[in-house]
Simulated assay, not measured.
Amino acid sequence: MSNIGMIIEERAADIGNFLVGRLLPFRQKRMVGPFIFIDHMGPANLRDHQNLDVPPHPHIGLSTLTYLFEGAIMHRDSIGSEVEITPGAVNWMTAGKGVVHSERTPERLRTTDKKLHGLQIWVALPKELEQCEPSFTHVEATAIPVWQQDGAEIKLISGTAFGKTSPVPVHSPQYFIKIVTPKGQKLNIGKDLYGESGLYILEGSVISEGNTYGPRQILVARDSTLCSFETTDDTTIFIFGGEPFPEERFIYWNFVSADRDVIENAKQAWRDQRFPPVPGETEFVPLPEQSGNINLK
């Protein structure tokens, strides 16, 4: 029997002035381990008058992970962080009881042609940490563990796997791994994984049980410890997952919690503008009153 329990196709979603490909959540699979939300941004070619501008908006109960392949994003938040993220680096923001941030094209690129391509990910927090103080960590690309193994380049972007640990300060057992195979390879990595696992194909193809799968798909494993597959030439994939939480998570707009009342309180706090502001920013994204839940279709 195939170890692939589900296939999730990328779906278009509008985040304001930018279209993305939504991968999680999905109606039949809301989370993979602690991973609750994944958006694929681009690849987009932006002209000199086109820029990414996501005004200040709030989060609770999660950590965000931004990982770029091309381009740059200026991150500003209510903690006081102001950091430009570039390809290969990691922005890891833990919202906890509440944080506000904006994401914009850096000033140095706003009047030039540019590209933008990457992943934006939310990782739910353990229930006991959902009300922790917010924090922000930026990890440069050179600090991320990367090595060669069986003809593949493996990069441990966050979490623990393969006997290694990324410097990104995660809050529960998990992993986010990039694997590049310049030449087609047979990979058997199940012994290095745990919990639930998903495989996202960015480029190239993955072959499993005689079936070939292409880009912009997530393959969810029935059993992460049996994760084995074959890749074609010039393939880039991401493996993500970890230990699932015992409690259900609820999600409304940018709010995640194991307690619906916490989400209701956050909604009212944002309506009343009681979240801390982002220094230097005056705009904000209003709470979507009519259809705040993320589309799970």
Score class of each variant (00 low, 15 high):
residue 182 P to R: 00
residue 217 Q to N: 07
residue 209 E to F: 05
residue 224 S to P: 01
residue 246 P to F: 08
residue 195 G to H: 07
residue 245 F to W: 03
residue 213 Y to K: 09
residue 246 P to Q: 09
residue 189 I to R: 04
residue 240 F to L: 06
residue 257 S to V: 13
residue 184 G to H: 07
residue 245 F to N: 04
residue 184 G to C: 10
residue 189 I to D: 01
residue 177 I to G: 00
residue 180 V to Y: 03
residue 252 Y to C: 11
residue 259 D to T: 08
residue 185 Q to R: 10
residue 243 E to S: 13
residue 203 E to C: 11
residue 221 A to M: 15
residue 185 Q to V: 04
residue 260 R to V: 14
residue 209 E to V: 04
residue 252 Y to W: 15
residue 231 T to M: 09
residue 218 I to V: 08
residue 244 P to E: 08
residue 232 T to C: 11
residue 208 S to T: 11
residue 196 E to Y: 09
residue 241 G to Y: 06
residue 199 L to F: 05
residue 255 F to D: 04
residue 240 F to C: 00
residue 243 E to K: 14
residue 180 V to P: 00
residue 238 F to C: 02
residue 220 V to W: 11
residue 226 L to S: 15
residue 230 E to I: 03
residue 210 G to D: 00
residue 192 D to V: 13
residue 222 R to W: 07
residue 205 S to N: 14
residue 223 D to H: 06
residue 195 G to T: 06
residue 196 E to R: 06
residue 224 S to T: 03
residue 183 K to S: 06
residue 199 L to D: 00
residue 196 E to P: 05
residue 179 I to N: 01
residue 190 G to C: 02
residue 254 N to H: 08
residue 180 V to R: 07
residue 231 T to C: 08
residue 222 R to M: 13
residue 252 Y to N: 12
residue 205 S to P: 08
residue 240 F to V: 01
residue 180 V to S: 05
residue 206 V to F: 07
residue 196 E to K: 07
residue 244 P to R: 08
residue 199 L to W: 05
residue 206 V to M: 10
residue 217 Q to Y: 01
residue 213 Y to T: 05
residue 193 L to F: 04
residue 204 G to P: 11
residue 229 F to G: 01
residue 224 S to G: 04
residue 195 G to F: 03
residue 249 R to W: 08
residue 245 F to G: 03
residue 238 F to L: 04
residue 200 Y to T: 02
residue 219 L to Y: 01
residue 195 G to D: 04
residue 219 L to A: 02
residue 238 F to Q: 05
residue 228 S to N: 14
residue 246 P to C: 07
residue 205 S to D: 14
residue 213 Y to L: 08
residue 228 S to D: 12
residue 197 S to D: 09
residue 246 P to T: 10
residue 232 T to D: 12
residue 223 D to K: 09
residue 253 W to M: 07
residue 224 S to L: 02
residue 252 Y to P: 07
residue 257 S to Q: 14
residue 213 Y to F: 15
residue 221 A to P: 04
residue 216 R to I: 05
residue 228 S to K: 10
residue 249 R to P: 09
residue 210 G to V: 02
residue 194 Y to Q: 12
residue 184 G to S: 13
residue 214 G to K: 14
residue 215 P to A: 15
residue 223 D to G: 02
residue 191 K to A: 13
